[in-house]
Design a protein around this nucleic acid. Structure first.
Length: 430
DNA sequence: TCTGGGGTCCTAGGACCC
DNA sequence: TCTGGGGTCCTAGGACCC
C-alpha cells in the first residue's frame, strides 16, 4: 500500500486572473482588484506584484503610483469569481476521485493512487486542462500531508507550475523556509517562536512537540507533526455545512447617529437571513458588533460586540432584524465615529432536520402540567422522542420533539397542559 | 479624507446544574 | 473563617486562513 499523497491546486492571482478571462487585453499588464468600497488591494497579477504592490495595501496610498504605471484597477465582482471558481472545481472533480474544496481558489485532491513518477506528468496535463477549459492558470503542489503540499505549491508557483515534493526532498525544501511561510503559522506565532530559536520550517519540524503544545495549543502541535509527514488533517470529502454566517461592511462615511447604525444593522440582518434561507439553514444565536476605525489615532477607540439567543432557531428576517436592532441599540454609545458594523449568525443547523420546538408558558419546570405534556408526547412518538431542554427563555421552558416522525401533527392546544396565556407553537419545517 | 469580508478552531472563565 | 466536585453550556477573545 503506497503512502498517502495530497495535491493542492491553487489558482494563480485568482481574482485578477478572472478579470483577464473576459478581457484578453489585460494579459501581460499589471492588474489589481480592490476590496469592498475600493478600500484595499486583494488581488494582484504577477506584473503588479513585480511593481512592488503589496497585498492588503490601502488603495488611496498607491493610487498615484498606479496611474503612473498604467495599472488596471478593478472593483471586486464576487459573483463572477464565485462562478469561475465553480468552473475550475468542476474540472478538478471530473479528474479526481476524492477532493476537498478548501477556499474559493484552492482545492486538495487525494493522489495517493498514482505512482510517484507518473504524478508530474499527470498533474502537468491536469493543469493544462484547467487552463484550456476555464482560462484560469493554476499551480499544483504535492506532498505527504496537506501542510507539505502547501510548501510544494509555493515551489510550484516559483517554478514550472507543478511540484511533487518527495520525502527525500523535504529537508531541503524546509531548510531556508521562513517559519512564517508555513501554513498555520501567522504573524503572532512567528514572533512568539523567535525567542525559542525557531525561525525556519525545519527548526519547527524538529522542535519539541510537548513543549509547543503547553506553550501554545494543539493546532501548532499538529502543524509540527504534519511537517514530519504525519497526516493530521485528512481530506474531508463533503464540504461541511457552514457553522456561522456573517454580513458586515465598513461605512463609506463614518457613522455617528444611532439611526444610521440601525439602518446598516437592519440591512445586514436582511441579507444574512436571505443567505441563511438560500442555504436552507436556521440560526440559534446572533451577534452584533460595531467599532471605530483601528487606524484613527485621533479619537478614543470603541468596540462593542455581544451575542444573544434568538427566541427560537429561525431564518425569519423580521425576527432576526428585530433582535439585532435591540442589541444594536444596547451596544451603541453616542460620541463615536463608527467605521464598521456587522451581524454574525451562530449555531446554524439544517432547517430540514430541525427539531420542532414547542414553547410552554409556565414558571415551573417540574410542574405537573409539563410532565403530563411530556408523557403525552412520549406516548405519541415513542419513548425518548421528547426531551426536556433545560434552556429557559424568560419565563418559558422549552420542550424539544425529535423529528423522527415526519407526521408530526400534535398541536399545543391539544396537549393536557394548563397555561395562563396562549403558548406560541412553532414547527420548523423544510 | 480614504485601510475588506467571511470563515475556522481553540481556550479560558463564569454560570448553572446535580 | 470555613463552606465539594464534576460536567456542560455559554460567551468572549485570540489565533489562524483565504
Amino acid at each position: 500500500m503506497s503512502e498517502r499523497r495530497y495535491a493542492l491546486i491553487d489558482c494563480n492571482n485568482f481574482y485578477a486572473s478572472c478579470e483577464r478571462v473576459f478581457d484578453p487585453r489585460l494579459l501581460g499588464v499589471p492588474v489589481i482588484v480592490l476590496s469592498n468600497n475600493d478600500g484595499c488591494v486583494v488581488a494582484r497579477s504577477a506584473e503588479a506584484k513585480a511593481l512592488g504592490i503589496k497585498m492588503g495595501v490601502p488603495f488611496f496610498q498607491i493610487e498615484p503610483f498606479c496611474k503612473r504605471n498604467s495599472v488596471r484597477v478593478f472593483s471586486s465582482n464576487y459573483t463572477l469569481y464565485g462562478d469561475m471558481s465553480r468552473r475550475v472545481m468542476r474540472v478538478l472533480a471530473s479528474w479526481a476521485p476524492a477532493m476537498e474544496v478548501y477556499s474559493i481558489d484552492e482545492a486538495f485532491l487525494d493522489v495517493s493512487h498514482f505512482e510517484e513518477d507518473q504524478l508530474q506528468h499527470e498533474l502537468t496535463s491536469l493543469r493544462a486542462r484547467v487552463h484550456m477549459w476555464t482560462g484560469i492558470p493554476v499551480s499544483i503542489g504535492v506532498g505527504r500531508t496537506k501542510t507539505l503540499a502547501k510548501i510544494a505549491n509555493d515551489i510550484a508557483k516559483k517554478g514550472a507550475g507543478v511540484a511533487v515534493l518527495t520525502q527525500a526532498q523535504e529537508p531541503h525544501a524546509m531548510t531556508d523556509l521562513p517559519v512564517g511561510d508555513v501554513w498555520g503559522i501567522g504573524r503572532r506565532l512567528t514572533a512568539a517562536l523567535e525567542p525559542l530559536d525557531i525561525a525556519t520550517a525545519s527548526q519547527l519540524r524538529d522542535a519539541d512537540t510537548r513543549q509547543l503544545r503547553e506553550r501554545f495549543n494543539v493546532v501548532v502541535e499538529r502543524t509540527v507533526m504534519e511537517l514530519r509527514g504525519v497526516d493530521c488533517m485528512t481530506l474531508t470529502d463533503v464540504t461541511p455545512a457552514r457553522k456561522t454566517l456573517m454580513v458586515s461592511r465598513s461605512f463609506g462615511d463614518k457613522v455617528t447617529a444611532l439611526a444610521d447604525l440601525e439602518a446598516a444593522v437592519s440591512t445586514h440582518s436582511a441579507r444574512a437571513a436571505e443567505k441563511l434561507r438560500a442555504g436552507r439553514q436556521i440560526a440559534e444565536h446572533l451577534e452584533v458588533f460595531m467599532h471605530t476605525s483601528p487606524f484613527d489615532r485621533t479619537t478614543r477607540p470603541y468596540t462593542a460586540r455581544a451575542t444573544v439567543a434568538l427566541p427560537h432557531a429561525t431564518a425569519d428576517t423580521r425576527l432576526i432584524a428585530g433582535t439585532a436592532l435591540q442589541l444594536a441599540r444596547r451596544l451603541f454609545k453616542p460620541g463615536h465615529r463608527y467605521a464598521k458594523a456587522g451581524i454574525l449568525l451562530v449555531g446554524l443547523s439544517d432547517a430540514a432536520k430541525a427539531t420542532p420546538t414547542l414553547f410552554a408558558s409556565t414558571d415551573d419546570r417540574r410542574s405537573r402540567a409539563l410532565m403530563n405534556a411530556l408523557d403525552k408526547l412520549n406516548a405519541d412518538y415513542g419513548r425518548g422522542a421528547v426531551r426536556f431542554a433545560s434552556t429557559k427563555m424568560g419565563k418559558a421552558w422549552r420542550i424539544r420533539v425529535d423529528r423522527r416522525s415526519r407526521s408530526y401533527t400534535t398541536r399545543w392546544d391539544e396537549l393536557p397542559v394548563a397555561t395562563t396565556e396562549p403558548p406560541r407553537v412553532r414547527t420548523i419545517t423544510a
